[in-house]
């Protein structure tokens, strides 16, 4: 399992022209998968942007925003490449093959809009079915896609309790310890010596966690945005998805947009 972490070569969203260069200078990769605990449960932050709960053999992914490209075409006549669903499912497939979860939880906004499932290509639909084969699959309701389970398999839930954890789409301000949510698409930015790196990230204060968006076309909201403040009154740590591993960055080191 640890070895597989290192073998993952293709980062989900390569961002920089320089990533490949000067590998000699690159720091030693940590061999330990970054793990932390929340409400007594051990969580592994996967480089793909998913959360792995080994004790429950459960993989959580948030904000897939499937069919976002076709939603743009239908609504505003912007013809973005119609391959975002395929790309998102391919990344998910990679994680599922690697981790072999007994259960996959899609933490809401799995489709970009309620009519997304109708527009999905037959091939992509088959890929969803293949992913679901032999495992439990839960669609959590999002704000973009209430009740999407029709015709796309799996079961449907508003919230899901898992051990000491509560899984729901939108973070709630006064949630008890152990809430895992998505919805905000957190992104962290580090600026240093005239260069800036902006990546999707997990955000946590040890009491709650907000997951990064998983979808290929999902944008990001800077974690220094005021909407995060009431959720983390005592500050937070952001775990940024790098090219080779996940990096834990303190709030003080993160820049605003």
């Amino acid at each position: 399992m640890k070895k597989r972490w290192l073998e993952r070569v293709r980062p989900p969203f390569p961002k920089t022209e320089d990533a490949v260069l000067a590998l000699g200078q690159r720091l030693e990769k940590t061999t330990k998968a970054p793990g932390l605990t929340l409400a007594g449960e051990t969580l592994a932050l996967d480089l793909c942007g998913g959360l792995w709960l080994a004790a429950h053999r459960t993989l959580i992914v948030s904000d897939l925003h499937l069919e976002k490209g076709s939603a743009f075409a239908a609504r505003s006549g912007q013809f973005l490449p119609p391959y975002d669903t395929r790309e998102t499912l391919a990344c998910l497939h990679e994680a599922v093959v690697r981790l072999d979860p007994a259960c996959v939880v899609a933490l809401g906004d799995s489709f970009h809009d309620a009519r997304g499932p109708e527009r999905m290509e037959p091939g992509d639909r088959a890929m969803v079915a293949a992913l679901q084969d032999g495992r439990d699959w839960v669609w959590i309701a999002g704000n973009h896609d209430h009740a999407v389970s029709e015709g796309v398999g799996g079961r449907y839930a508003e919230t899901l309790l898992l051990g000491g954890l509560t899984l729901r789409h939108e973070p709630t301000p006064d949630a008890p310890e152990g809430e895992i949510a998505g919805h905000l698409h957190p992104c962290g930015k580090v600026a240093m010596r005239g260069r800036a790196v902006r990546r999707r990230c997990f955000v946590t204060d040890g009491r709650r966690m907000i997951m990064p968006a998983f979808g290929a076309y999902a944008g990001g909201l800077n974690v220094r945005n005021p909407v995060f403040e009431p959720l983390f009154p005592a500050g937070f740590t952001a775990h940024l998805l790098g090219d080779g591993r996940v990096f834990a960055i303190g709030k003080a080191m993160l820049s605003k947009d």
Binding site: D18, L21, V197, G242, D243, G244, R245, F247
Partner: peptide, 10 residues
């Protein structure tokens, strides 16, 4: 130029 994103993050 030989400075990747991961170096900055690290």
């Amino acid at each position: 130029y030989g400075e990747g994103a991961d170096e900055i993050l690290a």
